[in-house]
């Protein structure tokens, strides 16, 4: 029968607490909301972490370290992976120096720098002893060794459609970089002919 109105009770549960306790190991072990690790919230307890300092020592700054302008100072500890370099480094430094995290420009510049970094690094790898090999770097060969076809086809997966776009994302730096190299070569040839 179709109900006429909503009622104040929750719908009945399919199993009782005793049935759940019997079926699921540990059911209710953390039943008391006040006795969970995330409780109490925001309670000052400086000794809890085990730190034996009040103010941490400052890590030496081995190169000018970019930082958010929402920070008062360079934090006492920071990562040293991949210092800014080249054109992408200039863009990154501008993003940090000029725009706060609240500004879309900050993040869009960083995303742009990532793409410049990718294109530059891809081009740069071609003059090293270890050039990029997209067949290895993308792991695409596992499509053959790990059932790429049967993992997708006939499985109603929602992600299969946009998998077709992945090669475009991967090939982008090669297309952009290749186009740039061709354009530069043509420009150089034109200059040589005209001089």
């Amino acid at each position: 029968m179709t109900p006429h109105a909503y009622t104040p009770t929750s719908p009945p549960l399919p199993e009782t607490a005793d049935e759940l306790r019997a079926r699921i190991p540990g059911w209710g072990a953390d039943l008391d909301p006040a006795d969970r690790p995330a409780v109490p919230r925001l309670q000052l307890d400086p000794g809890r972490s085990g730190a034996h300092w009040e103010v941490p020592d400052q890590q030496p700054e081995r190169w000018p370290r970019e930082r958010s302008i929402e920070h008062a100072m360079l934090t006492p500890v920071f990562g040293t992976s991949c210092p800014p370099k080249g054109v992408s480094g200039l863009i990154r430094r501008q993003a940090y120096a000029r725009f706060s995290e609240a500004r879309a420009a900050h993040w869009l510049l960083l995303v742009a720098a990532d793409r410049v970094d990718t294109v530059g690094s891809t081009l740069g790898s071609w003059v090293t002893r270890r050039p990029e090999n997209p067949l290895v770097g993308t792991g695409i060969r596992t499509e053959l060794s790990h059932h790429g076809w049967s993992s997708r086809v006939g499985r109603d997966r929602a992600d299969v459609g946009h998998h077709l776009l992945d090669p475009v994302v991967v090939a982008g730096p090669w297309l952009v970089g290749g186009t740039a190299v061709v354009a530069l070569a043509r420009a150089a040839r034109r200059r040589r002919r005209s001089s």
């Binding site: 925001l42 400086p46 809890r48 730190a51 009040e54 970019e66 920071f78």
Partner: peptide, 20 residues
């Protein structure tokens, strides 16, 4: 372990480790 956030158990929100 000792910033405003760590002193309140919010280790994932530490203010002393991420200049970026």
């Amino acid at each position: 372990g000792t910033c405003w956030f760590c002193a309140r158990g919010l280790y994932s929100n530490c203010h002393n480790v991420n200049p970026n």
